[in-house]
Amino acid sequence: MVIKQLIKRTSGWLYLNSAVGRSQLQGAGVILMLHRVLASDHTANLPHRNELCVGPKAFEHLLIWLRRHFDCVPLMDILQPGTLRSDRPKVALTFDDGWRDNAVNAFALLQKHQVPASIFLSTDFIGSRQRFWWESLGETLWESHGEQARRHLIECLYKRGHPVPVLMDDLDENRRSVTLLHYLQSLKSLDARELSRLTDECPQESMPQALDWQQVRALESSGLVRFGPHGASHAILTSLDDQRLDEELSRSRDALLNGCNRPLPVYCYPNGDHDARVRRQVAAHDFPFALGTGTGIYRGNSDPLALPRFGVSQRTARNPELLSWRIFRGGQP
């Protein structure tokens, strides 16, 4: 595994620093997908947090690396490029969900390094104490809220037919975290109402998980951050009937129109899930662009309602050459 990682990192470095790599990336756009920037790199390192979270040191390391190899631009500069051209490839940062730590931890580093970003809000959560099920269930099962709360949730999950694996009691922290990651992934297929009921069995936290509208407006007024919709309730759009899909799209669009001065004309699919019906409805709600989770480089000739992105984890933020390896793979014909 170590040798494999070394080969990928070396190949990624060579790709960005070779004439062939520079030629392939010229005029191209790379869109990155992040979610959270935690207060500590140690907490972001564990497997059940690694994919959605980065720590502040890793995030700053990533920003420095990006500025060295790319022109860091707003998302719309990639989707609607102007007349000014650069030999360097462009990169745009996007954040999904609208976590409060985007303002508390990420923004200061974005400002320090003058890297613009787009944040896509699950609008029902903004300015409310509504909670993301993954965070509430995951951290309760991790015992972040105490053993009593953990035992109560485990009992509720068992009664509802979702027993927690025995390995969740493994003494090894890493194995326990991997088990939790796989368990949370298995719950993604549950009905949103069931996940909400399970979330209600978790302790309330001292601070809301999501941004509030005052924070949204403050970030927007900086000129460095713009906002777009990421669903209203974060429901998987492909699972909704036509009426609920229309309501979800309309509610999230209207919330951005009321809460922001310049909302992006870009929709961001919750969990990346979309199909032809969803794409038609997104276009009908006046969104010419939409972000998925498929990987690839944007060259302006792919479906604007299924834009590719590269996910950034704590691991790749700490080792950006792994990201350049994925960009190399995503840029192949």
Score class of each variant (00 low, 15 high):
Glu201Gly: 08
Ala192Ser: 14
Pro165Cys: 11
Gln204Met: 15
Phe227Ile: 06
Asn174Phe: 13
Gln209Lys: 06
Leu187Tyr: 09
Ser144His: 09
His152Asn: 09
Leu180Asp: 00
Glu220Lys: 01
Gly161Lys: 02
Arg151Met: 10
Thr179Val: 12
Leu190Val: 11
His230Cys: 05
Arg160Trp: 10
Gln215Cys: 03
Arg151Trp: 01
Leu157Ser: 07
Arg150Met: 13
Leu198Pro: 00
Gln214Ile: 14
Leu180His: 02
Leu184Gln: 01
Arg150Ile: 05
Tyr158Pro: 00
Arg175Asn: 08
Gly138Tyr: 05
His162Ala: 07
Gly231Ser: 01
Pro229Gly: 04
Val225Gln: 04
Leu167Gly: 02
Glu173Asp: 12
Leu245Tyr: 09
Gln214Phe: 12
Glu194Trp: 03
Gln209His: 08
Leu219Glu: 00
Gln204Gly: 10
Arg244Glu: 08
Leu153Val: 01
Thr179Pro: 02
Arg197Lys: 14
Leu245Asp: 07
Leu167Asp: 06
Leu195Arg: 11
Thr140Ala: 05
Leu237Lys: 02
Ser196His: 14
Leu198Gln: 01
Ala192Phe: 09
Arg151Asn: 10
Glu143Gly: 06
Ser186Val: 09
Leu211Asp: 02
Asp241Cys: 04
Gln185Ile: 12
Lys159Trp: 03
Pro229Thr: 04
Ser136Lys: 08
Tyr158Gln: 14
Gln148Thr: 13
Lys188Asn: 14
Ser177Glu: 00
His152Arg: 14
Leu198Tyr: 01
Ser222Lys: 07
Leu190Phe: 09
Leu190Ala: 14
His152Cys: 08
Thr179Leu: 07
Arg217Glu: 06
Gln204Arg: 15
Gln148Tyr: 07
Leu211Tyr: 03
Leu181Ser: 05
His145Gln: 10
Tyr183Asn: 05
Leu224Pro: 07
Ile154Phe: 01
Leu198Cys: 07
Ile154Ser: 07
Leu184Tyr: 00
Cys156Gln: 15
Ala235Ser: 04
Ser177Thr: 01
Gly228Arg: 02
Leu157Ala: 12
Leu190Ile: 10
Gly231Gln: 01
Ser186Arg: 08
Arg175Asp: 07
His234Ala: 03
Tyr183Val: 09
Pro208Ser: 13
Asp212Ser: 11
Leu211His: 02
Leu184Thr: 00
Leu245Phe: 06
Arg175His: 12
Ala235Arg: 10
Glu139Arg: 11
Ser196Gly: 15
Gln214Asp: 13
Asn174Met: 15
Arg176Tyr: 03
Glu155Cys: 10
Gln243His: 13
Phe227Cys: 04
Ala210His: 09
Gly231Asn: 05
Thr140Cys: 08
Glu155Lys: 12
Lys159Val: 12
Gln209Glu: 14
Leu224Glu: 05
Arg244Phe: 02
Glu139Ala: 03
Arg244Cys: 05
Gln215Ile: 04
Ser136Val: 01
Leu187Gln: 10
Glu139Tyr: 12
Ser189Met: 14
Phe227Thr: 04
